[in-house]
Amino acid sequence: MRSVDDPDPKPFETLAVEIAREAAVLALAVRERVVGDRSVADMATKSSATDVVTAGDRECEALVRERLAERRPDDAVLGEEGGTAPEPTPGQVRWVVDPIDGTVNYTHGLPWFSVSVGVELDGRPLAGAVVEPVSGRVWSAAAGLGARLDGQPLRASALDRPELAVVGTGLAYDPARRGRQAALLARIASSIGDVRRQGCASLDLCSVAAGWIDGFYEHGLQPWDWSAGALIAEEAGAVVRRPGTVPDDGLGREATFAAGPALAAPLADLLRSAGVADV
């Protein structure tokens, strides 16, 4: 996916890792200070009562923006909390930031959340980093240069049989969509090996990269949810489908999909036959 005219992606991966690591330390510190006592947690509603904005989201994104302003002042930034202004111009690098992916896990004391920092140029991924604050694991990739977990190369699953596959998915905050997603899962459950729902899309995509799960699908994700993780999965050899692609593949325009190369076609066929585009 990298153009010959794109800049060297490796320095962007290095900087994404550096900034995401610093934000991860802050995320844990804020959780101890604010979210540890949920009776006084600083929570405001987002799209529904389930989707909360925490002090951790805001402080971590502010830190990432500050560091990028120091190191890459001419770049654009798209963040879950702060948005982007103005839109990137042609040839301008854009950083896509999820300060805390897995917010509900974060506020409930669960370990499955991350800081995700992606880098793109004219819509093409250059680099990305996903850091897990609790475990300290660092997932990263640079376009054309592979994907790594704590510096070790990653490779997606070689499994080719959906009936044996462990498939990750997510459920939307919106109750109506969540109900449709649950119904879809019920239709495919007997045709796959097992299902996992971590509540953190970036880590689901990284799990595909590592071969820990064989495939992943979800509708309704935002760019900051998948920017870094999708590149990590792709650079590990997975077949990746990002939202916004043409709808004639039968998965729907809002679908995020990733699977090992041998599983991708049969898993996509299974999802289409179950009506995945309708969720």
Rank of each mutant, 00 (worst) to 15 (best):
Thr14Gly: 06
Gly36Tyr: 03
Val25Gly: 13
Thr89Pro: 00
Thr14Pro: 01
Arg33Asn: 10
Arg33Thr: 08
Ala69Pro: 07
Thr50Pro: 00
Val17Asn: 04
Ala41Gly: 12
Ser39Phe: 08
Cys60Trp: 00
Gly56Gln: 11
Arg38Ala: 15
Arg31His: 12
Gly56Met: 13
Leu78Arg: 04
Asp57Ala: 08
Ala76Asp: 02
Leu28Val: 11
Arg21Asp: 04
Lys46Arg: 08
Arg33Trp: 01
Thr54His: 02
Thr84Cys: 15
Leu15Asn: 06
Glu22Phe: 03
Leu63Lys: 04
Ala16Asn: 09
Pro88Tyr: 13
Arg67Pro: 07
Thr54Asn: 03
Ala24Cys: 10
Pro88Cys: 12
Ser39Glu: 14
Ala44Arg: 12
Val64Pro: 07
Gly79Leu: 05
Ala49Tyr: 05
Ala23Arg: 13
Glu70Ile: 12
Thr84His: 09
Lys46Tyr: 04
Leu15Arg: 15
Glu81Val: 14
Ser48Ile: 10
Val40Gln: 13
Ala41Trp: 05
Pro88Gly: 09
Thr14Lys: 07
Thr89Glu: 03
Pro86Gln: 07
Val40Ser: 14
Ser47Leu: 08
Gly79Arg: 06
Ala23Cys: 10
Glu80Thr: 12
Gly83Gln: 11
Ser39Val: 03
Gly56Tyr: 08
Leu68Tyr: 09
Glu81Arg: 01
Val52Gly: 10
Leu26Lys: 08
Leu68Asp: 02
Glu61Met: 07
Asp51Glu: 14
Pro73Asp: 07
Glu81Pro: 00
Pro86Lys: 12
Ala62Phe: 01
Ala62Ile: 01
Glu81Cys: 06
Thr84Asn: 03
Glu81Trp: 00
Glu70Arg: 13
Ala69Glu: 13
Ile19Leu: 14
Thr45Glu: 15
